[in-house]
Design a protein around this nucleic acid. Structure first.
Lengths: 351, 351
DNA sequence: CTGAAAGCGCTTACAG
DNA sequence: CTGAAAGCGCTTACAG
């Protein structure tokens, strides 16, 4: 195996030699230290530019214990959330001279292994974890033992001095039920996204409370568990429509399942929304283009990513003793389209 | 700012002290060198395990010029492709003890800046780039000057000793036109994905040749340029249906635009497929759940990601002088559903 | 088979 | 304001 960087590598010594100063001075210029005469500084900067010098990150990491790198850990599933959030994170981080090391895990054991490697290997300065399957009060002690700043997305781990960013799933779901109730629905069914997912559980909680508040036949069981995929929404809907009496509205915990639900309604020769109202959650890009256009809850994923990046960056620049424990909850907006049968807002949809 | 790794950091010296050997010996054990007595090896390994020692990546990077990290650069757009491909790459790379550093760029200047920082900063051992907007023979010299292995996805840059992975867009598109022609369509329109996108251009080329081969009224202009979004597909379809005579089929260069096209057909009170056949490209997860279910071309994104990872890993372990120039073309399969009006296959779709 | 020592590319007290 | 030197955590000839 050959040396990798080959002849491309310019070092601080090359710069020092060319500028006729010591490496210490070059270093001071690089680090904007004020203890450099401006004439010297200019000369060094000229050489840096001329040689297109970029400091070796490994040397920096070794010496300063800073790598300008943030670790990102995501669950294996959720490709859609994943992509959007990363874009939001990356935009902010790259503007602030930080890079992203990503990995995905499908269970906590794998998760912990990755975090361990990242942190003990000296690869990262901070960590952003999206782990909706993490279960609050048990396990999951490992990453919290490290002293690097951490941001958790969509999981309620009570991590001291860490930042947790959550969607306000509960209120959005509750209000969605209230909206359906206002449209006259009494039997509002729910397709659950899965017991092991934080967002899904919170949406469910909002659904239950919404039904109670609206006194919407809450004693009738109208719940089926899906797994956030179109096909599970399809199957769940077939199940639900076997109930007697049948539900008049279905609230799917995400848009993919709502899409499956609409397809199932079609297979059952039910018209949406007149025979059956169907609503989702997420507001994916095709939601506006379905037939009928999908009523849903908009989830601002890029913004979520940006908030995570901002929170992490802030803590990266704060002494660990000064760091506070923060919880950021992102309020969510409904997007009322045709699939819920809401008259007054149909007109607001136009292309 | 406090030191980051705090007391978590175990070094090779800690291990050496505890095992009563020199750091050189520990290093030899870590690197599976055979020049260590097995008794010594066992003792050292026991300490390594006991202290949960993980070598510092920065020190390794400095010393060996290897970081066990692969850089991934993606265009800002294409969130969907992005997520799926990364999952494929990550799965393979993490199994082989490599990490992923990602970044996205929206033009070549930014691209080059990122690559520069990655390579000259000593951050990566190899590079995977997805740059459908890269334009073959011009510009884009920079990354190729480096000696690290490179894999290009969806762009035809004639990079010596690099691997290029392409989808067989051309043949899949041509065959799609032939399929529509076989169903009796003469006026087959095309919604282009954008001149600056390699996949889009290739799909267009397939469309043009398909029409010629089928002698499908090829002299009539039935093309509109979109940008791979639902809304552009919607607008493009409104445009196309102003043509006299109207097209009887629309081939959208991706599924998102096909979704917009179906919605537009609906707005125009046209039934799909009987009044207007519509087909897409990508086979996104909701394609099977639309109404009508979308005929499209399946693109195996995870596999694409895995192939990229495999190719890179292979070259990472090959001396640069031995590396060959490779081009891998992934054949694509059609998925015939209802939206094209193909009778014989409707029955094969079931839930 | 094992250890002492130099060195990878930086930063940072320390001395001047 | 500037430089010589030590040190961050590893690896690898070199000597034994």
């Amino acid at each position: 195996m050959s040396s990798n960087y080959g002849n491309q590598m310019t070092t601080i010594s090359d710069v020092a030699r060319e500028a006729k100063v010591s490496t210490a001075t070059v270093s001071r210029v690089l680090n904007k230290s004020d203890k450099v005469r401006s004439i010297t500084r200019d000369r060094v900067n000229a050489v840096i530019r001329k040689l297109n010098f970029i400091p070796n990150v490994n040397a920096l990491g070794l010496q300063r214990k800073k790598t300008k790198t943030v670790g990102l850990i995501f669950p294996d599933a959720s490709a859609y959330y994943f992509a959007e959030i990363i874009q939001g994170i990356n935009r902010h981080l790259s503007q602030n001279d930080h890079q992203i090391l990503i990995s995905s895990a499908h269970d906590e054991a794998e998760e912990i292994k990755i975090v361990n490697g990242f942190v003990k290997g000296g690869r990262i300065d901070g960590l952003i974890m999206m782990m909706p399957s993490a279960n609050g009060n048990n396990g999951f002690k490992i990453p919290l033992a490290y002293e690097i700043p951490e941001v958790f997305i969509s999981c309620e781990i009570n991590a001291p001095r860490a930042t947790t960013i959550l969607l306000d799933n509960y209120n959005a779901a509750r209000e969605m039920v209230e909206h359906l109730s206002r449209l006259g629905h009494k039997r509002i069914a729910f397709i659950h996204g899965g017991e092991h997912n934080y967002d899904a559980r919170e949406r469910y909680r909002g659904y239950v409370d919404g039904r109670r508040i609206c006194q919407a036949d809450e004693d009738v069981n109208l719940e089926v568990v899906g797994n956030f995929t179109e096909s599970s929404g399809f199957q769940a809907t077939l199940e639900l429509m076997k109930c007697k009496p049948q539900p008049t509205a279905i609230f799917a915990a995400n848009d993919a399942m709502a899409i499956g639900a609409i397809e199932a309604a079609r297979a059952l020769k039910l018209r949406v929304p007149s025979d059956l109202a169907i609503v989702g959650f997420d507001d994916i890009s095709s939601a506006a283009y379905m037939d009928p256009a999908l009523t849903t809850v908009h989830v601002p994923l890029r913004r979520l990513g940006r908030l995570a990046a901002e929170a992490l960056l802030k803590n990266l620049n704060t002494d660990s003793a000064e760091r506070t424990t923060e919880k950021i909850i992102i309020p969510l907006q409904h997007v009322i389209r045709r699939s819920c049968g809401s008259e007054q807002t149909v007109k607001s949809e136009s292309f």
